[in-house]
Design a protein around this nucleic acid. Sequence first.
DNA 1: TAACGCGGAGAACGCTCGTTCTCTAGCGAT
DNA 2: ATCGCTAGAGAACGAGCGTTCTCCGCGTTA
Lengths: 173, 173
Amino acid sequence: MIQEAEVLTAAEALFYERGVQQVGMDQVRAAAGVSLKRLYQLFPSKDDLVIGYLTARDERWLASVAAHARTAGDVLTVFDWLAEWFAEPDFRGCAFVNSFGELGGTSEAVAAIARRHKEAFRQLIRDLAGDDELGDQLTLLAEGAITMAAIGGSPEPAHQAKRAARALLATPA
Amino acid sequence: MIQEAEVLTAAEALFYERGVQQVGMDQVRAAAGVSLKRLYQLFPSKDDLVIGYLTARDERWLASVAAHARTAGDVLTVFDWLAEWFAEPDFRGCAFVNSFGELGGTSEAVAAIARRHKEAFRQLIRDLAGDDELGDQLTLLAEGAITMAAIGGSPEPAHQAKRAARALLATPA
DNA sequence: TAACGCGGAGAACGCTCGTTCTCTAGCGAT
DNA sequence: ATCGCTAGAGAACGAGCGTTCTCCGCGTTA
């Protein structure tokens, strides 16, 4: 759909940076360079736009980690990918965790998307690890690193997580 | 201050359950059973109330984990404490992570409280573990478990985290 | 008893924002 | 050239909410 990409790009940047509720439809409209009428044609309500934002980010984010880790062929490289992500200047944690904290208590739709996203991530790590229990443990390390990096403002948790992951991989099952 | 406890209790329950921005001052007033005038005497603005909410929760939460783990004298029991917390019916993740996601992008005060809280938690785990690197790794497991339990709606991550923690503890430095 | 002041109830104000409506300029078709 | 349709700009509307203001009852004091 024409201009849908512009709207989603603008919405993603704004929602992620400031939080969904701190961004008005008119700001998305201005950033996307479309008219309010067109914006509401593409997304009939702000809720729809939020779902669109999260859905698009879900796909892009998971595809990016998966591509990185699958070409390297090693679960541990997931933590290198995280370190790069954490170092991005506008990094502000996991969009799904943030949205869940903001809206999960009142919007089942948002809670469901966050659940699906985390479930998919967990499954990806399980696949890469080749073992469910180990995969789940590595997932916890990755999630913990995301939280600590977001709030602490340092990419260091990615390296701590990687070292912990290496230790877990070396542990006899 | 008279009635301050009632207000903070009401605010904590509502803010935590629904998110700060989804709760109006009048709802806090009603739940606390005070007048709007009194509410604004105690907390001159909603921002002040939010800070008060997070500060009170920070102290109570950390004191609770610390008490539990220090009497047991074993870092691993932190994960048992987490499992109990996750099983509470109104568990909805870490209040600081949620508030950071909601307001951290626009409120430096909220971001700073979240940072202090996570730093204090990390320090507590370091102390309990008796080793900084190991403590930081266990912190990541705990944080990851909180996130996964909140979004996934299951207390299982606490047990996965505990098993991973046990493995890390058994690993030669 | 009469004056006074504190505190509560809740109306009112002003602003933000999601959503809709209006007006108009441009453009393609007859 | 004129008609009609589309789309954009932005005004307008209505709800929600943070904050303040008004009014009133009640308890205290001289």
